[in-house]
Each structure stands twice: as structure tokens, then as C-alpha cells.
């Protein structure tokens, strides 16, 4: 049976210090939770940069190519004579190409972000804690899963005690 050790801190500053401490102690898969992104937290947790930019680049390139080739194909396959302009009027294809590039990039930004975050995920053991509900308003938490290498509940309790922790609780995950 897994468990999650949930520790609450009173300010973003204390949360940041606690995360730095955990990283220095070699923990890597712990997670911090806050009502808004905290400046410097990615570095404190030693997180790599988000991969989202590359996903969006691919999405944008797809939209660009798809948009331009759609128009080229349609104009040659279904030729319309419009004030004597050439069928392949690439200048006139720019607006639609641009719009489709933006559209595809935006789709990949939004759905790419959800995919990287594994959302929607309506079940999570951490939601079992009623205490955790204030995370979306004014709570700053650290959660450590018992799968984490070197997990020792009592040792972590002692560590958090030195970091001015506000509240500690253990959530049991029976799945």
C-alpha cells in the first residue's frame, strides 16, 4: 500500500526553502503544490525545462504546411478565374496559411500542455485530504510519495520540523 506524506507551509518562501532542502537531500519525485506558480520553484526542484515549446513548433509547422498545400491543391484542382490572377497565387494564400499555423499551434499548446500534465485526471489520492482543499486558495504543500527512493516517514517528519512546517498528514492510497 502506498502513502503520501503531505506537509503544509505557511508562505511561498518557506515552501521554496523546503523544496531546496529536499532536493539537496537527494529527493527527486516529490511535488510541491501552490495556488499560483512560485518564482524560482523549478530551479529549487531541479526540474528540466518544459518540452511544450517543441510540441508547439511541430504543431505550427504542420498548420503552415497543411494550410499552404490545401490552398495550392484546391486552386489547381478546382481552377477559378478571378480577375485574371494566376491559379497559384501564393501571395493571396498567406492570410489563410498564417491563420492555420496559429490555429494548429494553439491547439498543440493547449492539448500538449494537458497531455504533459496528464490532465484530465479527476482521481488523485491527494484529494482525499480535506486539508488539501485550500491549495487552490492559500495553501502551500509538499507531497512525497512512499515510492520515492529513501522514503522514511519519521526521518521526513524530523526534516520538516526543522523547516517551520505548519501541518503534516499521511494520506493512504489503497489502489
Amino acid at each position: 500500500m502506498n502513502e503520501i506524506l503531505l506537509a503544509e507551509f505557511s508562505t511561498p518562501g518557506k515552501l521554496l526553502k523546503a523544496a531546496e532542502k529536499l532536493s539537496n537531500c537527494g529527493y527527486t519525485t516529490y511535488e510541491t503544490y501552490s495556488p499560483f506558480p512560485i518564482h524560482g520553484m523549478d530551479d529549487a526542484m531541479r526540474l528540466k525545462h518544459s518540452k511544450l515549446g517543441w510540441i508547439v513548433l511541430c504543431g505550427g509547422a504542420t498548420g503552415l504546411i497543411a494550410g499552404f498545400s490545401l490552398q495550392t491543391w484546391v486552386s489547381l484542382h478546382y481552377p477559378l478565374i478571378i480577375s485574371g490572377k494566376p491559379f497559384f497565387s501564393y501571395q493571396a494564400f498567406i492570410p489563410v496559411t498564417f491563420e492555420l499555423m496559429v490555429l494548429f499551434s494553439a491547439f498543440s499548446a493547449v492539448f500538449g500542455m494537458f497531455a504533459l500534465n496528464k490532465l484530465p485526471q479527476h482521481y488523485n489520492p491527494i484529494f482525499k485530504s480535506d486539508y488539501f482543499r485550500k491549495v487552490t486558495s492559500h495553501g502551500f504543500f509538499i507531497g512525497i510519495d512512499s515510492n520515492e527512493k529513501g522514503y522514511d516517514r519519521d526521518k521526513l517528519r524530523d526534516l520538516f520540523a526543522t523547516l517551520d512546517v505548519k501541518h503534516i498528514e499521511v494520506i493512504e492510497d489503497d489502489e
Binding site: 511535488e31 510541491t32 503544490y33 501552490s34 495556488p35 499560483f36 506558480p37 512560485i38 520553484m41 523549478d42 526542484m45 526540474l47 518544459s50 511544450l52 515549446g53 508547439v56 498564417f98 491563420e99 496559429v102 499551434s105 494553439a106 499548446a109 493547449v110 500538449g112 500542455m113 494537458f114 504533459l116 500534465n117 490532465l119 484530465p120 485526471q121 479527476h122 482521481y123 488523485n124 491527494i126 484529494f127 488539501f132 491549495v135 487552490t136
Partner: peptide, 28 residues
């Protein structure tokens, strides 16, 4: 709300997505 829980790993991708969307919406 899709099971949002304010996780920092989520915020990291979220902020990136928000920035990219802003950068796309501006020329749009």
C-alpha cells in the same frame, strides 16, 4: 477543472502554454 491541484510540475507546463498562447494571440 480537470483535476487541477496546483502541482508545480503542472504550473511549469501551464505557464509555458500561457506564454505561447499569448505569443500566438498577439499577431493573431
Amino acid at each position: 477543472s480537470l483535476g487541477w491541484r496546483g502541482s508545480n510540475r503542472h504550473w511549469q507546463n501551464y505557464e509555458k502554454a500561457y506564454l505561447l498562447l499569448a505569443a500566438l494571440a498577439t499577431p493573431l
